[in-house]
Design a binder for these strands. Structure first.
Lengths: 199, 199
DNA sequence: ACCTGAACACCGTTCAAGT
DNA sequence: ACCTGAACACCGTTCAAGT
């Protein structure tokens, strides 16, 4: 799996193949079928390991809102560390499986902040889907750079919108306020969703 | 393109190939290279057509909030109409290109409701990324069904969470409140983000 | 138990050749 | 202008054979 992740990170998930992994490990491409049922299972395992990354050490301070922020911030960072792999999280149902610890932590903090279960369920799901949408979009732009120039390339802002001004006047008005800093923009969305968390 | 969409919808985007399209059109698989630079360009065109679907006829009533809801509700429905194609929206930068009309409409309604440009930019992006995250997650579950049973299959709820109760007590508390109705759940998230839209 | 290598049924794309 | 068909360099996966 470590080798597979290395191939994915350096060549991109698109160039990852059983044959490429075999070449990297200097073994026959079919040897992996002893250890994984196939390419899909291997990729699923990689994705799950990324989602689980750091989920066991999520903070629990006296500020539940900050702890929730940190939870999703960390999920974002883990996914962005492997931009070409990130879109494959959609292969797994969200919120279950590898997400257990993370989900439980987020819901626990919402509960701790005095939110009732109905609101907590709603807020939790909105946070998760927002994070996935934002992060996968950003990852795609990053991935484009990786696939062109190899590992370590940099991507531009996720939404540097420059619409044709004459045809879309309203959009042109807000365009300057779409932040260049993707992380700040991401956190602003989290805060919007968490805006009236009790206390 | 119509033929390509038909192949994608019936066989699934995973089974879509130049050779499959050639067989469907009863022509040589390489004939398409006269009309599209390659498979990627063809898929991008399909994705753009889905994103643009209905964007020209978005409502503009005296209730801006309802109009925004309808905008994203419609984007969700268009994407879910082609569940195996939906994840490929990530191939295109969000909010630009095929999104122009849709983005401009949403921002115009936020503006019309009295929101200042900074907040409008933040709310708009949060709505878009939330919608993408929610919809692509739902589409994947639907796609699984399509690929197993062919077109027209039904998927389950996007998040019927049944966590191991002993290990994740907080999550178990909210699980019953995660709605089975995916559309209702989706709209609840939109309303959460739009919660204090002026007027 | 684990690895090898041939084989099968596929891919996207290019290019010379046809009409 | 458009289509064909051979060809190239790839895929994932299976299976009999080895150690």
């Amino acid at each position: 799996m470590a080798a597979a992740m290395q191939v994915v990170d350096t060549q991109g998930a698109g160039a990852f193949s059983m044959r490429a992994l075999g070449a990297f490990l200097e073994c026959d491409p079919t040897a992996m079928y002893r250890h994984f049922t196939g390419k899909n299972a291997l990729l699923d395992a990689l994705v799950d390991s990324v989602v689980r990354e750091g989920a066991a050490t999520l903070p629990e301070t006296d500020d539940p809102r900050a702890d929730i922020r940190e939870n999703f911030r960390q999920l974002r960072r883990s996914l962005l560390a492997h931009p070409t792999l990130a879109p494959l999280v959609l292969r797994r149902p969200p919120g279950v499986g590898a997400y257990w610890e993370r989900s439980d932590h987020a819901v626990a903090q919402l509960h701790r902040a005095g939110m009732d279960p109905v609101d907590a369920a709603n807020v939790y799901q909105t946070l998760l889907f927002y994070t996935l949408g934002h992060t996968l979009s950003e990852a795609r732009q990053l991935a484009r750079a990786v696939e062109r120039e190899g590992a370590g390339a940099e991507g531009g802002p996720v939404a540097a919108v420059r619409p044709p001004e004459d045809r879309h006047p309203d959009l042109s008005d807000v365009a300057p306020h779409l932040r260049d800093d993707n992380e700040a923009q991401f956190l602003a969305g989290l805060d919007l969703i968490l805006r009236d968390l009790p206390r």
